[in-house]
Write a protein that binds this DNA or RNA. Sequence first.
DNA 1: GTCTATATTTCGATAGAC
DNA 2: GTCTATCGAAATATAGAC
Lengths: 192, 192
Amino acid sequence: MAQPRGQMRNRILDVALELFNEQGYDKTSLREIAERLGVTKAALYYHFKSKSDILLELHLRLHELGRGALDEIDRVGAEKDALNAWPALIDRFVDDLLANRDLFLLHQRNQAAFHEIVDDERHQAENEDIEERFRHVMANPAIPLADRVRMTCSIGAVMVALMGADALFGDEPTERIAELVRSTVHELFPGK
Amino acid sequence: MAQPRGQMRNRILDVALELFNEQGYDKTSLREIAERLGVTKAALYYHFKSKSDILLELHLRLHELGRGALDEIDRVGAEKDALNAWPALIDRFVDDLLANRDLFLLHQRNQAAFHEIVDDERHQAENEDIEERFRHVMANPAIPLADRVRMTCSIGAVMVALMGADALFGDEPTERIAELVRSTVHELFPGK
DNA sequence: GTCTATATTTCGATAGAC
DNA sequence: GTCTATCGAAATATAGAC
């Protein structure tokens, strides 16, 4: 059952993401992950040095998305400013979220669990950098506080509406809801 | 050290809420709760039959808020409809959230943990009732889908902006942020 | 209502064979 | 790269004295 190259590593991450979202990170044991994969617990330790290391790896995928979004803010914000660019940035956020719903769900539903990887070296530098960059955008005194609140509100609007969409608007196609969310949020930035 | 009547029960709930928000529900042991109270683990079992029972009791406080809000929707929605009443309902939600931030934080940061109390009898009836009532509001075909999405967005806007306010707008007084959130969300319902 | 002491379970993690 | 076997730690929960 030896796997060619990095195959198994990704299979583990996929199954872990599945189970973490079904049961929660803390309620999911390595035994369960191994069982669903048809291997034993010990096999997992060849690929990851600890349970939290699996969570970390999944989290790093979110980091990539976050960095990508922040790069975009910097890029577009150079010509205009973050406020003027916000509707376009939100559109991108909607796309990212829909394309990576599982990862966002993991983060939303296991927020407490992520505190346990906060002291990992690999993680810490990146994470503080991302949070700092985001705080920096939201602390920009050149943008009126009212607009910065608007920007924050728009993020929450997208997250709750799209991640709760299945439960609330299960009959409607996701893309229809997404389009409505986009236009709703755009109304908060008239003329931008 | 015997406590008069239900005193200790509430002290346990307060300390548990504190620790659950600091460390997460799963990472908090009964030993820690007992230590912070200056009693032993076994003493807790006199007041609660299990750890998840403590979480349940805290969750029921949120139920009360939820039922209160839904009653208000029904009451106001009888004259107008939920859409017309929404801005006023959001104002109420902002107040509830600010007055019970700890409870909302608990729910937000430990969403996965709540899956473990979902099969409790006391909880189940209430919970399904609340969720069903809420879904019912959001499934009302008399309200255009675009407006129902707007309503959902507004909830997310309030939650993210107010619960993340400390990290983002720590310098500003909470009431100032709250007022900006209210007026931002009101813009999504012009003429209501 | 709180204590000491302990039963029981389960988990994360490691050692070493194959 | 996966296995069997096991260790050690920590947690929930209970029994019974005070």
